[in-house]
Nucleic acid binder design. Sequence first.
DNA 1: CGGGTGACCCACT
DNA 2: CAGTGGGCCACCC
Length: 116
Amino acid sequence: MKPETLNFFEKVYQVSKQIPHGRVTSYGAIAKYLGAARSARMVGYAMNGSTGKDVPAHRVVNRNGLLTGKQHFEGTNLMQQLLESEGVVVINNQIQDLKKVFWDPSNELKSYNSDQ
DNA sequence: CGGGTGACCCACT
DNA sequence: CAGTGGGCCACCC
């Protein structure tokens, strides 16, 4: 068991967990923070396994602020419900004031905090 | 071992 | 300005 084997998934999970309450980020932002800006798809793919974990995948949306992964959640509008529950205004699966609620890990975290 | 897929993003036309 | 295609990297069969 080597936790250092932090796969791309694990990295995404940790970053997602660091997302503040009432804030959202994009796959590309996380991917870029991990050094794979052109591999945003992997971030979303990682989220596929985040369902059922302590990872708030609902706080992760695409660049347009659209809840693309909503269909992957249990319910139909569960993702939107969770975001609105945190104070994020979401209309028609589209986050409003994304610029205000947007949270950039590279801008807030700056570095990898192994100590969480 | 090889091919296909994917909760995306960027660039070109 | 808007639309389309390609690219990227990891997991699944």
